[in-house]
Structures are given as structure tokens and as C-alpha cells.
Nucleic acid binder design. Structure first.
Lengths: 214, 214
DNA sequence: TAGATTGTTAATCGATTAACAATC
DNA sequence: TAGATTGTTAATCGATTAACAATC
């Protein structure tokens, strides 16, 4: 059904998780079918955009009827890949690492967490949600044994370049990056998703100041 | 100097924190001046885009010379508003709230944290980086006393709509939103910056799967 | 002055929206 | 069948890139 191997723009991809979230919600409210128009009004975008976005991947709707919520939900989940768990390690069990480990619903997002690592003797050995924090010295072993593909980086700025290099040598090809290190620039071939919290915060600061000037 | 009150597109604004970061780095490395070309190569974008972006706010450069790093850094900081602290409260001292409170350099981002709130007796009274966690019952008092403008939301999904409504009634006009609740849709007049961690993670999952198919 | 590099206008590219024929 | 709504093509809009005159 899905049109494979076309190059889909990132603008479209970034909207998919939001569709997924709204569809989940509709499902929970017992809604069976929805038209692009109805969905567009709930999400605050145009019906045309929704149809364009979905048609990048295939014709999931029915003329005169709309989309079946449950089916569309599953299709988008499949496109996003939440049904194929990716073996993943989390590096850094400081405040941020622990929050992420506790907070995220990894299994539902296509992530299988196979290890949490830190180098501080204060945290190594402690447990976070069933995962024992392992010493960083075990990283090679765990990555090889589990064919780990993704690393989540919640580590200090200074050590990042060295660790990224090492992880890539272990075959890691994707990073969920909470540091400021510009992985994509240094290693163009890996997939990187940056979470730049301070960038986001400063964008808000900008908006607050603009508001104040008016 | 700065051209006031033009409407600057969000695409431009979202690049500013990144410029700010790179300029900080150049400063630290003792670099005095930089041309748009040199900066473009370091950042992986076009010189043209840099000049266009900066010229939304004013002519900060000098023909034939380039930009003075320190001056440009300060100008962008000023545009982003990092030099005017915005009184802010943090709601929710669970894993995520604590991580944010510990991890962020609020003062350097134009944020003045005046209170952390939670409703669980387990955390109320504990200290996070000099801030005592206060019971949610104190929120009105603190917001009024400090003319709080921004709320950081690290609270459970279920309580979010109610709390957002209450915060807006207290005069809050900006949210740094870690929940999935669609504040902007329900309250079009407030500034919202969303941190959708699971959206980001699923975007990475998508990329990993695409990669796998090739 | 000559060389370099900006600020700015014009051209291109990509993303969004509108329109409508196809079809359930 | 008639009405509704998709899938898709065409038109518009906005953002990025290229080009170059202004000027340090």
C-alpha cells in the first residue's frame, strides 16, 4: 500500500507524531471514522495539508467516507516504525538521563532500551525502572551483544565528541541528542534528532519580550 | 539599530539560538571577527541565509570586514531577550521537573525562576538547587507577588487543562510545555513553546527504520 | 586605491493551499 | 443515484539561495 522509497520531506515527517497523537485520542473517544476536514479543524491546520501528507505514503482513505481512525492510526504508527523496536542504550544517568528513563514510554515509540550507562560510582549499580545502571566500561559488550543502533546522549558537554566517536565505531547509527554537540555536522551519515532545550527556552524568551514591547 | 516591530518569521527566530551558541564558541576561542562565509561553513548553512537572517534585525556587520564576534553575540542575546529576566514558575517536581530545574541555566536564558511547585507531600519541602519545593496551594500568592509571566509545565497529562486555565487566570502569558496538551489551540493568545519529547523520539525511530529498509 | 564583504534585490526552490475530477 | 470526500494537479505563498551594487 505505502509508496516506498520516495523522498518524504522532514516537514511532513515531523507532523506524523502529532497526527498519531490525535488519532490515538479519537480512538479513545470511540470515534470510528473521520474526514480530513473534521481532523483539520481539531488540529488547527488545513484539510488539504492532511490529505497531501497522508498521500505521501499511500491512499489510506475512501472517497465519500473519510478515514477509518483505527486503521489510519496503525498505518502512521507503522510509517513511524513504532512496531519495530530499535535496540538502544542511554548514556548518562544524571538528572536528565534518569528523567528520560523514567518518563518516556520507550516501548510505544519503537525503542527497546537495553542498557543505561554512567561512569560515576554513585549511580552505577542503582536501578532505574528495572534497568540497572552499568559502568561505561561495559558499553562495548552490551552494544555488540544487542546489536544496538541508537544512543541517547544525556552526558556532559566535554565528553560528548569522544563518546560519539566511540559509539559510531561500535556501529551506532542514530542519536537522540540532549547535548549541544553538532553530531550531524561531524558525522553526516548518522541519523540525529536533537533536543535543544535551551534553544527552545530562548525562543520562548524571545516571544515574551516581543509581547512586552507591543 | 534594530528594526523594530517587523514581523520576523519563526524560521528565522529558531535559528537565532544556534547562532548565539556558535558565537559564544568563537568568543571562547578568542576569535574577534568573522565573515558570513566563514560562519556559514562552520555551521553548515549558506552565507546568504546568515546575512538575510541578521538583516531582519539590523545591519550588524561592516562591508569588507565582516562581523565583530562579541558585538554580534550581544546583539543576538539582546534580540532573544536573555538580558531581561522573565519571572517564571516551574510546575511539577517529578523526574522531569527536577531534571529541568537542575539542568537548565535559567539565568543565562532570560528566565528568573521564582518558585517550584508540586502537590505531592513527598517532594514538597525538599530543595532543588536553592529552591524549596512549595505546595501548589501557594501558587496564587507567588505569582502575584512576583508578577510571574511564564510557567514551565512538567505535570501529568490529566491535570494539565485545569492548571493551564488557572495559570492564565493568574496572568501567565507564556508556557514552556512538556505535556501534550495543545495550549496554543485552546488559548491562541499565549506564547507557547512545546517540548514534545516523544514526537522527537518517533522522528528518530522513523529515520532508523527508513535507513534499515535501504 | 583595491580587495573584501556586507546589505539588499531578484531568482529559485519547496511547501502549503486551492480546486476539482475521480469515486465510494 | 446523489452527496460526500478523497487523491491529485495546479496556483499561491513563503523561505532560501544567488547575484551584485554599495561601501568599508
Amino acid at each position: 500500500m505505502a509508496k516506498e522509497n520516495q523522498n518524504i520531506s522532514m516537514s511532513v515527517i515531523r507532523r506524523l507524531p502529532r497526527y498519531y497523537r490525535f488519532l490515538h485520542n479519537l480512538k479513545e473517544n470511540g470515534i470510528i471514522r473521520i474526514s480530513s476536514r473534521e481532523l483539520s479543524m481539531r488540529m488547527g491546520l488545513t484539510a488539504s495539508q492532511i490529505r497531501q501528507d497522508l498521500n505521501c505514503f499511500g491512499g489510506f482513505g475512501q472517497q465519500g467516507y473519510g478515514y477509518i481512525v483505527d486503521q489510519l492510526y496503525n498505518e502512521i504508527g507503522h510509517i513511524l516504525g513504532v512496531d519495530v523496536p530499535t535496540p538502544t542504550v542511554l548514556l548518562g544517568a544524571g538528572n536528565m538521563g534518569r528523567a528520560i528513563a523514567n518518563h518516556m514510554d520507550f516501548e510505544k515509540r519503537g525503542i527497546r532500551l537495553v542498557g543505561i550507562f554512567d561512569d560515576s560510582p554513585h549511580v552505577v549499580g542503582s536501578k532505574i525502572r528495572n534497568n540497572e545502571v552499568l559502568p561505561i566500561s561495559k558499553i562495548d559488550e552490551v552494544c555488540k551483544a544487542n546489536k544496538v543502533e541508537v544512543a541517547i546522549l544525556c552526558i556532559p558537554e566535554e565528553v560528548t565528541p569522544k563518546i560519539v566517536k566511540h559509539m559510531i565505531s561500535l556501529g551506532i547509527s542514530g542519536f537522540w541528542n540532549f547535548t549541544h554537540y553538532d553530531i550531524a555536522y561531524h558525522f553526516p551519515d548518522v541519523a540525529v534528532e536533537n533536543v535543544h532545550l535551551s534553544d527552545s527556552l530562548m525562543t520562548l524568551t524571545y516571544q515574551m519580550n516581543k509581547r512586552r514591547k507591543k
